[in-house]
């Protein structure tokens, strides 16, 4: 974990309100791994004040580059979207415990399930799984046709299914619908997306080995402020907790209350 001023190499609008940002810096990249996140300072001044947590979508060690993909939704991310190549961004990271690729044996099948802006961290995960010989299947869910991104990039790595809630692209329905309708089988499941999607995955595949990446509003991002805690499953005292920023954002299915 370090703070580095990273240079913007490129910023591209890749779907409705969704931007792909490539950042370059000599140090942070070499500490990063799949599923970790960055805490980005989007402005120099005090408004917006807090950093924004954004997942690492791709790590390019040779070029000292990191890619993040985010939706320009509120004040901070909208300001980030205005930044141009050549400008700098203060980055705190890499943060958290990401996806472990060791949990899937070479030759086994891993299914990677992403919902909307939860899709990005699955890309670096997929690259790493493919590298060690895991067969990857991707199921990506979006709201509609305008929201879809990275379909081709995932397709290059393995079988890829896209579903939209309104049916304007791919299959109509949820990611769970796709897995069931296509009869997809797998050894491990990795998922990132809205909490209802993660809950549905937990309920649909309780016996499977799986890992979920969670979100929560954060302060520090490094474990000091207790903003981002969640309860641990099967804890009658309700005092045990995990911090999403440092113990997570990735947890094994069944580890924490969603």
């Amino acid at each position: 974990m370090i703070v580095e001023n990273m240079e913007i190499i490129s910023q591209r609008n890749i779907a409705s309100k969704v931007y792909e940002l490539v950042l370059k810096g000599p140090e942070l990249v070499h500490l990063a791994s799949q599923g970790q996140f960055l805490h980005l300072k989007v402005s120099e001044g005090t408004d917006p004040l807090l950093r924004r947590p954004i997942s690492i979508a791709q790590i390019n060690q040779e070029k000292d580059e990191l890619t993040v993909i985010y939706r320009a939704e509120g004040k901070g991310t909208s300001m980030l979207a205005l930044k141009q190549a050549g400008e700098e961004v203060s980055v705190l990271g890499p943060l958290g415990n990401g996806f472990s690729i060791k949990e899937t044996k070479p030759g086994n099948v891993a299914i990677l399930v992403g919902g909307g802006i939860g899709v990005p961290p699955l890309y670096e995960l997929s690259l790493q799984l493919v590298k060690v010989g895991v067969k990857v299947v991707h199921v990506l869910g979006f709201a509609g046709n305008d929201d879809v991104f990275y379909e081709e990039k995932f397709t290059e790595l393995g079988e890829t299914y896209v579903a939209t809630m309104d049916g304007t692209y791919g299959d109509k329905g949820t990611v769970i619908d796709v897995i069931e309708e296509k009869g997809l089988t797998f050894d491990t499941i990795y998922a990132c997306g809205p909490t209802p999607m993660l809950k549905a995955i937990e309920n649909s595949f309780p016996e499977k080995k799986g890992f979920l990446s969670l979100e929560e509003r954060m302060g520090c991002g490094i474990g000091a402020c207790f903003a981002c805690v969640c309860n641990v499953k099967n804890d009658p005292t309700k005092t045990a907790y995990k911090k999403i920023c440092t113990d997570g954002p990735v947890f094994a299915i069944g580890e924490v209350e969603l």
């Binding site: 004040l49 509003r217 954060m218 402020c225 903003a227 805690v229 309860n231 005092t239």
Partner: peptide, 12 residues
């Protein structure tokens, strides 16, 4: 030991 309040616990 205190768990504290439910989340979200911070707002900008």
């Amino acid at each position: 030991t205190r768990f504290g309040n439910p989340t979200p616990r911070v707002a900008e």
